[in-house]
Structure formats: C-alpha cells, structure tokens
Design a protein around this nucleic acid. Sequence first.
DNA 1: AAAGACGTGCAACTCTTGTGCATTAACAGG
DNA 2: CCTGTTAATGCACAAGAGTTGCACGTCTTT
Lengths: 138, 138
Amino acid sequence: MQEIENFLVQKEIRPTAMRLLIYKFMAQKSVASSLNELEQAFEKSERTTLYRTLKTFEKKAIVHRIDDGTGIAKFALCEDTCNCELGTDLHLHFHCTRCNETQCLTEQKIPHVILPKGFKATDANLVVKGICNKCPSC
Amino acid sequence: MQEIENFLVQKEIRPTAMRLLIYKFMAQKSVASSLNELEQAFEKSERTTLYRTLKTFEKKAIVHRIDDGTGIAKFALCEDTCNCELGTDLHLHFHCTRCNETQCLTEQKIPHVILPKGFKATDANLVVKGICNKCPSC
DNA sequence: AAAGACGTGCAACTCTTGTGCATTAACAGG
DNA sequence: CCTGTTAATGCACAAGAGTTGCACGTCTTT
C-alpha cells in the first residue's frame, strides 16, 4: 500500500484513500475493469468519483482505456514503460465471449499494417474476440 | 434503382421505399454512416425506422457494423463476397481524427496474430486512427 | 490558522440505443 | 381487383453509459 502511495505521488497524483483502493483493486485483477465493476466493488463510493478517478489516472497515463467492442469502456493499468505509442506500446486486447472479460495481451503488439497512399496512422486498436485460456473451449 | 431492388429481393429483404433510399445513400458514400447521419439525410423519416432497417440489413449480411472507438456505431455496405470471416473478409477500419470519418480499407486484411496458449480467436476488430487521404496532413 | 486548490457526493442531464404497441403498407391467393 | 396475412413504419417511452454543475469536505501551503 505504501508502494502504491509512493507511485501515485511520483506520478503527481494525490494519494487519497479512494485512489489507493482503486489502484490496488485494478492491480490485483488480471483483466480490465469497467466502471460498473468498480461501482460494485466499492459500493460505498460514488459512480462519479470512480469515473473521475479513472479519468485522472488516464490523463496521468497510469491506466489506459480499452474499447473492446462491447460498448462499455474498460480500464487497465499501463505497464511501467508504457507511453501508449504506436508500434512500441500498443498491444492487443482479448475479449472472451464466454466469460465476458477483457484482458491485455501486452506481449502481442499490434502488427504493422501498410496503409494506402495518403493515410497516416497515429493510433490503433486491435481487439480479438474468442475464448480465453480460463474458459473451457469444448 | 431497379438493380438495388433486385438485389434486396435476392437477399430476402422487402424492397420498401425507405430501404431502397437508405441502400442507395450508403452505396454512394465512400465512408461509413452513423445512425445520426442517416437521420439528418432522411429528415422525413423516423429514427426507429432507420435503426431497424440497419438491423435488418446487418442480419441479412449486406451491411456490417463498425465500432471505430468513437462510441457511435457506424455502418457500411459489405462486399459481395463477404462472409465477415476471420482471416478472409475482416478488413481494417480507418478513423480520421481530422474529418471524423470512418472508412473501410477492404484491401487491408487484419494480420494474423499468434495468441498465447489456450486462447482461441473467432473474431477481430482493428481500427487505425490518424489522418486520411482526403485531409491535408501538414 | 487561513486561504486556496483539489477531491468527493448528489442530482440532473445528454446522447445513443432499444422496446411495445398501434397503424400502415407489401405480398400472396383467390 | 379484392382480401387476409405478414411485415414495416411511426410514435412514445425507457434503459444504460457517460458527463457536468454545484455544494461541501479535505488536503496543502504559507
């Protein structure tokens, strides 16, 4: 917990109780969290607080927003060295259609695609859907 | 117009006036359309009708829904031979952050990615963001 | 301790998407 | 051409996620 506090301070984020708890919660999960999940996990807190906390985390680049195609935004912690840059940091996201969880596959970077003349890429998002390694695929 | 009617009938879709117009409208556009755009283009018609028409088209596999990360669903006509299958039909979508248009790059198929053991892919979505060929990139 | 900046909780609102139901239009059979 | 069945349309309404304004509380700085 002390570590998290130090980390937040280092990132210029005030280490309030809520923020510590939210960060800890996300760090312990291996899959991305939606606003709704956090709301359930912290029933005593307000949706708005969670919402703004995530926004702050996102701005300070310690979490990234994931659009997995479900229409519900998910959030996951960034890796230490992440700058969310195309070609280096941007990894693919896997959405399991069985357990409905979304996770980062940080090892799998988004492959380089050759765009037609005149197109210039600055960002990319690759979501693969299917069955994850925790769900029986039979 | 007669061609469109034949096409719809062949796909088991009743060729009502609205459907013909909507199909024609989408065929003339090179970029994907949102529900909102269609609403503006057909002010005399109802949102619900457009919504349900798109849903019908989607079910009959003559349009596909595009999630470009803006949170607003876009729709574009499928190619004749399209089955929306991974590895053959699924192409990438390009979202221009300048003109805010989304288009299909049907030539650019989604590259094959090697997933970790235990993962099984059935679908994928790749959205590249940047500046399109119609916007000045300077 | 006071002042200012920042975080939190509450309420209300927007925008997109979706549903129920009555009405209207399209198609098939006589 | 008329009629009955089926499907499409129009209207009202609702659900859900995301967002903002405002008041209040807490923390930091001096």
